[in-house]
Design a protein around this nucleic acid. Structure first.
Length: 252
DNA sequence: AGGTGTTTACCGCGCC
DNA sequence: GGCGCGGTAAACACCT
């Protein structure tokens, strides 16, 4: 039997779940993260079936994004304003699909409470970090330092979820994870101690050199994403181009 | 206002 | 029959 291709679906419903479709969209993006509108666009571009009844399936898709721990909502960078956050995949969610087949899901991906709490704390901290930068940019009085003192290292996979008390706010942190640097605006504004170039440079070159706090925000964001995604692309998932999604598996 | 995100509830299906 | 998963509907809150 010939292997079905992307094109062969035509107006037929593709055999992929919303989770698989969303994973495809995220995987196929250069930064491995997309805003909701881009996920929609990926799907409607490739699968004509989803150009109809958009309200129905988009509601389902949003439900999946929120409901499944395999999807992680990453706050926008301050220099990329817009509606909604970016969505990416949790690094530990990669064995979700059997042999990389997007048709077969092994098991539902669920984070333990501790892991979920520390991830949420990290992301919430990034969001407030971004807000503080924007406030500074707007000329507001110097924004207070963040109440937490930890960095993106907390996102590493496979860490134990043992809770740790943070400064003035109880924040769950994986034990044994040392913050790369203090999570304060001032600390982040300091020159990088010794670091390779940022893994996620801005796609569009800026006309003017961005102010230091913006660079710091970008750096922090890149660090966080690197922590999230470095384990996202094991050799099994050799990446070529999105045409591979015309097959059922990513690594066939 | 409309898009985005969260949550709850219900149903159908396949598997054990 | 119970359970897990996927799909759908819907209500609601929040944000741009």
């Amino acid at each position: 039997m010939p292997r079905p291709t992307r094109e062969s679906y035509g107006d037929q419903k593709p055999p992929f779940s919303y989770i698989a479709l969303t994973a495809m969209a995220i995987w196929s993006s250069p930064e491995r993260m997309l805003p909701l509108s881009e996920i929609y666009r990926f799907i409607t571009d490739r699968f004509p079936y989803y150009r109809r009844n958009t309200q129905r399936w988009q509601n389902s898709l949003r439900h999946n994004l929120s409901f499944n721990d395999c999807f992680v909502k990453v706050p926008r960078r301050p220099d990329r304003p817009g509606k909604g956050a970016y969505w990416t995949l949790h690094p530990q969610a990669f064995d979700m699909f059997e042999n990389g087949s997007l048709l077969r899901r092994r098991k539902r991906f669920k984070l333990h409470k501790g892991e979920k709490d520390s991830l949420n704390a990290e992301l919430a901290a990034l969001a407030s970090f971004n807000r503080a930068f924007l406030a500074r940019q707007a000329g507001a009085p110097p924004a207070a330092t963040m109440p937490h003192a930890y960095g993106p290292a907390a996102l590493g996979a496979g860490v134990s979820p043992e809770p740790v008390e943070a400064a003035d706010t109880a924040v769950l942190l994986p034990a044994g994870v040392r913050p790369r640097r203090a999570f304060t605006i001032d600390a982040l504004l300091e020159p990088e101690p010794r670091r390779t170039p940022s893994p996620a440079p801005p796609r569009v070159p800026l006309a003017l050199p961005p102010p230091p706090y913006l660079l710091a925000a970008q750096r922090y964001h890149a660090e966080l994403l690197a922590g999230l995604q470095q384990s996202c692309l094991p050799p099994l998932w050799t990446w070529r181009d999105t045409s591979q999604f015309s097959h059922y598996t990513l690594n066939s």
